[in-house]
Computed example of a mutant assay.
Amino acid sequence: MTVQRQFFTSDEAAPVVVENPLGKGRVLLVCEHASHTLPASFGTLGLSDDVLESHIAWDPGALAVARLLSASLDATVIYQNYSRLIYDCNRPPESPSAMPATSEIYDIPGNANLSEAERFARTAALYIPFHDRISDLVAARDSVVLVTMHSFTPVYHGKRRDVEIGLLHDVDARLVDAMLDHVESENFQVERNQPYGPEDGVTHTLRLHALPNGLLNVMIEVRNDLIQNEEGQRAAADFLSELLIKAIATHSP
C-alpha cells in the first residue's frame, strides 16, 4: 500500500484492469501495453506530448482489438493501465528494457540512471500486481488459452515492415501451428515470430504464465496502421477471432 501511495494519487486509476471477469470462453486476453498514461508523479519523463502518444509509449489499437475479441469469444481481458515507459509488463524486472532509458531513437530522461530503490518501487507498483492478477485468473479457471494482444509500428529504425499480423510463440508452438494451418484469407499477411521473436525477449508473459502451466498460448502482433480506426479494428478482430476458434477447436480441453 505504501508503494501504491507513492505512485498514484487518490483520484488516479488502478494499474490493473479486468474486464468481463465472468467470461465463459477459454481465452484469457492480456494487453500489457494498453495505455500511454503516465502516473502524475512522473510528469512527462522529459518527453514531448507527441512522443508520449507514439508507439514507444504503448501499443495503439491493441486494447480496442482485445475488447472486440472479448465480445466475440466471451473472453476475460486484463490490461495494464499505465505506459510501458514507466514499466513494461512484458519484461522481467532484471531486464534493462523493463524501464528503458532509450526506446528506438528516443532517449527517456526520466528513466536515466534509476536507482535500485526506484526500480524496485516501479516493479512493486506495476509489474507485480499485474502478473499476480494474471496468475489468479489462470488458477481460477480450467483449460485457459493465453492470448497476449499487441501492435507494432509499420516503420522501425527507418525500415518498412511488410508483415501485417505476427503470431509469436516461445518453445510451445502448438496454437500458432494450428492458427497458421487455418489461415485461408488473403486479407492479411500473416507470419510466424515476426516482427519479433523469443530471441528479442518479447515472450515474457507467455514464459511466466503459459509455459509452466502447459497452456495453449500465442502473442499476437498487428501492424498499428491497420487498426487506427474502428473499421480496421473490427476487420482484424473478426479475422483473429475466426482463426482462434478454429485453432483452439483442434486441441481438446
Rank of each mutant, 00 (worst) to 15 (best):
F152E: 09
L38K: 04
L137A: 07
P253R: 03
S151C: 11
T44I: 02
E32A: 15
A101D: 08
D200T: 11
D107C: 07
N81V: 02
V183A: 09
H251S: 07
N111Y: 00
S252F: 02
V65T: 06
V147H: 03
G110D: 02
S185C: 04
R84W: 00
S143D: 15
H169G: 03
Y127L: 05
G43T: 06
G61P: 04
P212I: 04
Y156W: 11
D162F: 02
E12H: 08
Y127R: 04
R5Y: 08
F120C: 01
V27D: 11
A101E: 14
T203K: 15
A71P: 02
L244N: 05
A57Y: 01
P212L: 04
S83P: 08
P39Y: 01
N224G: 09
A13H: 09
V218E: 08
E231T: 14
D170T: 07
M149S: 10
V138N: 11
D225E: 15
Q4T: 11
H209K: 04
A117G: 09
V147A: 07
E184G: 15
E242S: 14
V3E: 03
N229E: 14
E221M: 14
W58D: 03
W58F: 07
L240Y: 11
R207W: 05
R234P: 03
D177V: 00
T153S: 13
G110W: 00
V77A: 09
I128E: 15
E186Q: 12
D136N: 10
F7P: 02
V163T: 13
T44L: 01
L28C: 05
P198K: 13
E230N: 15
N187M: 08
E12W: 03
I105C: 05
T203D: 13
S252I: 03
H150M: 04
V3F: 06
V65G: 03
A71G: 09
L29E: 08
I78P: 10
I220G: 11
A75M: 02
I86L: 11
V183C: 10
E199W: 14
H33G: 02
D142I: 02
V190L: 12
L211R: 14
L146I: 07
A178R: 11
V222I: 15
Y156Q: 09
V155Q: 09
L22T: 06
S70T: 01
A210E: 10
R67E: 12
V16C: 15
N113K: 10
F120P: 00
L28A: 03
A249D: 07
R5Q: 13
A71Y: 00
N113M: 09
V51E: 13
I165K: 10
T37A: 15
A140C: 13
H169L: 01
D181G: 12
E32H: 08
V3Q: 00
L69W: 04
N217E: 14
F8S: 05
G43V: 07
C89A: 03
